[in-house]
Design a protein around this nucleic acid. Structure first.
Lengths: 184, 184
DNA sequence: TCGCACATGTAACGTGTTACATGATTCA
DNA sequence: TGAATCATGTAACACGTTACATGTGCGA
């Protein structure tokens, strides 16, 4: 009801996105997190069930009990219209500089749910991502010189892998962008 | 004093490692985190000063006040012998499967401080890392088929970047391993 | 004298982690 | 009958985030 509602956490957004793709129970979600790559974002019942409770309390999802199953009744959740709107706003929101530095995985999660938006939104997202990642790559390259030549190489080697990670992310974003431009 | 002391957090290990490379004050650490790539692991005074306090209380670091400066006195911290040992144990410890899945960045941090150990330890670490990452890559490749062909490509595209990240990590580990094998 | 860099903290808050608890249903 | 799977939770705990508080010394 209030305008300036609290921002959901990454886990809550992940749940919201999964429920937008397909209504599910808490246990279903648990299995998705346990068996697929999205499990990088979470984990155990101790996180998921409370998160579902919060989302429901804030009116972003609703649960309906399904008695029709032979097994114990499940509570199937799906986003409300407000939840859907919150999710879409998140998916399309500006990419902050800090997100690239410290929450690149969350940006990837955002893109993963972009099938809920149109191709124009995906293009905007990928363009923004490429630019911001490039900026950060430039910063990192400037930092290279802080590693003295004669010092042990370990720090620098770890740094190089980190840098490479961002470089391939930028390349990925541009390649993905081409994909969405071709089918315009 | 007690044997089964609590495991430090990633941030605490990062601080311990930085102090092992060179004694520093809290403010110095703050600047390192703010200006270099290690800042991915932290952040603000609100995390660093309490972490320093915990490390000191557990006897892993000691601080000595430096009055000799013209400015306000700084408290310079350095690892105790116990802290040094704790750090080395962490650096050389077995790589758990879950670490690769969800804490790859922490593994990179560990390697970055491997200059405190010998080349044999680095080789063991890199060999273990390559094996574990390969295992996880195999798992991920098996997951590829859950993406239906006709469905929107976004999820799969994000997945591919994640997979690529692990692939290049394995490649990096082997390349680094060769480096440490050549100079044996 | 105004503001910035230096330097060190504290308090509230929410959330993830870990571990535990519960009970129904299916299958061996 | 017992074990494994289905299904949903709760409680303690510590940690990171955010925001705030405090005070010195230096240069414009």
């Amino acid at each position: 009801m209030n305008q300036a509602a609290k921002q959901p956490t990454t886990l809550e957004y992940a749940i919201l996105g999964l429920l937008a793709l397909e209504p599910r129970s808490g246990y279903d979600l648990l299995n998705v997190f346990r068996t697929t790559a999205i499990g990088n974002y979470s984990s155990s019942p101790g996180a998921i069930y409370p998160a579902l409770g919060r989302l429901e309390k804030r009116g972003l999802i609703t649960g309906t009990v399904d008695h029709m199953q032979t097994l114990r009744p499940k509570k199937i959740f799906q986003p409300t219209s407000m939840g859907d709107e919150t999710l879409r706003r998140w998916l399309a929101s500006e990419i902050a500089k800090d997100d690239v530095k410290r929450h690149l995985d969350e940006l990837l999660l955002r893109f993963a749910f972009h099938s809920l938006l149109d191709a124009a939104a995906s293009r905007a997202f990928l363009r923004g991502l490429a630019v911001k990642v490039d900026e950060y790559v430039a910063e990192l390259r400037a930092q290279r010189k802080i590693f003295p030549k004669e010092a042990p190489p370990h720090g620098r080697m770890a740094f190089e892998l980190g840098l490479q990670h961002y470089v391939s992310c930028a390349r990925w974003a541009r390649k993905a962008l081409r994909h969405f431009e071709e089918q315009s």
